[in-house]
Nucleic acid binder design. Sequence first.
DNA 1: CGGTATCCTTTGCGATACTG
DNA 2: CAGTATCGCAAAGGATACCG
Lengths: 136, 136
Amino acid sequence: MDVTARIPHHSPACMKVSQVLSRIGDKWSVLVIMMLRERSHRFSELKRGIDGISQRMLTLTLRNLERDGLVTRTVTPSIPPRVDYELTDLGHSLAEPVQALGAWAIQHLAQLDAARARYDAQGRDLEPGPEMTRTA
Amino acid sequence: MDVTARIPHHSPACMKVSQVLSRIGDKWSVLVIMMLRERSHRFSELKRGIDGISQRMLTLTLRNLERDGLVTRTVTPSIPPRVDYELTDLGHSLAEPVQALGAWAIQHLAQLDAARARYDAQGRDLEPGPEMTRTA
DNA sequence: CGGTATCCTTTGCGATACTG
DNA sequence: CAGTATCGCAAAGGATACCG
């Protein structure tokens, strides 16, 4: 499928993007998906690998991903118990466009920060004349 | 000293994806970007084109996109005033991977919903034995 | 080890009213 | 037309404690 194909803004396509983002657009889901891209990980590995995530949020994030069929949860009832998480085929297919977004992020995040710094710096009590302003 | 440096799964890529998502992963940004993909729009057009968005949130969303250098805001001081919003080059470059995610959404959102329905249906008062469970 | 349960603060966002 | 100001609720998410 041609990824550059035009999607009219009134089409259900935009709504679908929004719905997908409302699922994986939270604070941690993408990090989990990225971390599971290469191989499965157990709970504690994910917890240590994702800096700053709380146990509670890792659990919730994984539950939601499992609910959406993006990851599998495999319980090995040993002592101590072991639980492994792995991307499903669906999860892997999602990881691709997410990775594309990641590539964009790597290339352009600096520009975002620069633009933000510029915007914030200029925003203070400047009183430009009544001419047309073009802010970018 | 960076305490996170020794953690192997901490590639900068993942962090950057997160930062980008924390910017455009809100409820409305992607809708605005998608709507501006083809041509510029004025405020009221965006408001009417994006179903359900409040005036306040459209303003805030546009401000943040402008701050990040993703859209330009062009004021024409006529009466009544006219303000046009347009994607920058940076904004257009972001629209591409977002579009890729949109394509994925079109193809797979139904599977997400189906998986969710399955998960929700099965979740109630099942008491599986101590055997290994594989949930997908 | 891999969770739940509870509490509490922060953030997001809609509704409404007002303005140049 | 294109905002800004204020309010208030609801969801997100962190901290901590407890459990099989």
